[in-house]
Design a protein around this nucleic acid. Sequence first.
DNA 1: GAGTGGTCTAGACCACTTT
DNA 2: AAGTGGTCTAGACCACTCG
Lengths: 256, 256
Amino acid sequence: MESLNLDRHSVVPLYFQIQQHLLQDIRSGRLKAGKPLPSEEVISKRLRVSRMTARQALKSLCSLGVAYSQRGKGTFVSEIKLEKNFRQVQSFTEEMEARGSRPHSKLISSEVVPVGEEAALALRLPPEEKVIRIRRVRVADALPMGVETTCLPQPLCPDLLDKFDPRTSLYRTLSQGYGIHIVQADEVVEAGLANSEEARLLGISKGSPVFLFTRTSYVQGGQAVEYVKSTFRGDRYKITNRLGQSGNDNSSGGGM
Amino acid sequence: MESLNLDRHSVVPLYFQIQQHLLQDIRSGRLKAGKPLPSEEVISKRLRVSRMTARQALKSLCSLGVAYSQRGKGTFVSEIKLEKNFRQVQSFTEEMEARGSRPHSKLISSEVVPVGEEAALALRLPPEEKVIRIRRVRVADALPMGVETTCLPQPLCPDLLDKFDPRTSLYRTLSQGYGIHIVQADEVVEAGLANSEEARLLGISKGSPVFLFTRTSYVQGGQAVEYVKSTFRGDRYKITNRLGQSGNDNSSGGGM
DNA sequence: GAGTGGTCTAGACCACTTT
DNA sequence: AAGTGGTCTAGACCACTCG
């Protein structure tokens, strides 16, 4: 903390530089769970930033879930470790890599088809529009985890099926090949039962418990670019979530 | 918005009064999904508050998940209707009331029992400790939604079973009767099948899809005070979640 | 009383989007 | 060019916690 040199002309906001530095102190164990972080006042004076900026750095740590504030007492390092995040947009590939698993995928089908009613609504496309539909079995460490059907508006990435190796990360291809960066998504989770096809593909019995995910993903600016329905094994998949206190301001994050 | 009279001497923060007023406009439909909220500038001038205060009101709506901001464009009403929040610590009662449903509960059993292995681990109790165990069927608008088993360390609230009406909110009793304010929780969600007892209590068939929730709740400071396992109907319960990009600042929330 | 976070002000400059 | 949100400053008063 004493050794932090802020770059006042960087495009990186000051509060973010401070947040990152504190995060490193926490990860490295220099700041231990339950111990107080430097107060707003201290950060403000030591780094010669306004108190509001120091405050923003601390609050951003609170919304990450790695710290919590107590009025009149201070801001403390959170007891719980999880930094992985049910709140972060992540592809299956990113998620599994973050957990230390080796992800890959088996292609079931990939084709250009008319957008269905459901996907048209989610993607806000006219009903005559075409979408690229990719169905894959998602695999982690050689174990089948789920079946996923992705729909993308065809005009957005017309030659995707030529460029994309379906065993790899779709999000990476979209980002690197088309400049499409997914920054937000809405996800609905339901509990259901595997149908015969899903059971066969996943190597489980028909009627086994599964999670049903429905996700609509957006780029900066709010345009919907992806509609995904997936079925994941209930015996191999868990969602974990960190809940924070009530709702005027920040909150925190969990993982799986 | 024009008619809003701020009480500048209230203990209720200005930004919170503004937030509540905007929330009403959204709920009532005066502000529709996808439409812009008043800008920071406009709120600031119209209500004669500083821009930072107007901004805080808008950002608090974003972290509730009912709005989202776009740099250079504005702040818009979120498409998602449900304001309830998968990120907020909320009791079943609070959750249902926020959705406009009438919650109540049917008591199955309440007793003082030795803490089990699982709960001992979660609550960090020695294995010989006793816990108060309360089993209830959770009901919303006369429809059974789930079965819930709550364990609380007995020393924390020794006379709870005398004081607590199990048809009401446990969180409110803990807060008002014992000064126990739950501010954080870790929750695990799994997909499963109803067993015979659950099926009977919930009026569904054995083997129907259900959500299994396991929650450990904490007070300020990190002490675990509650361990809950619950089974909720897959046909009546959904989780919705808004995922944001990585983690500098605020994010938003979904519901069910 | 000293230290802390919570709220608030009245400005400022910037990057971005739209017209 | 005008409007928007994102960041930042340098103050201020308050309520709360703790010694």
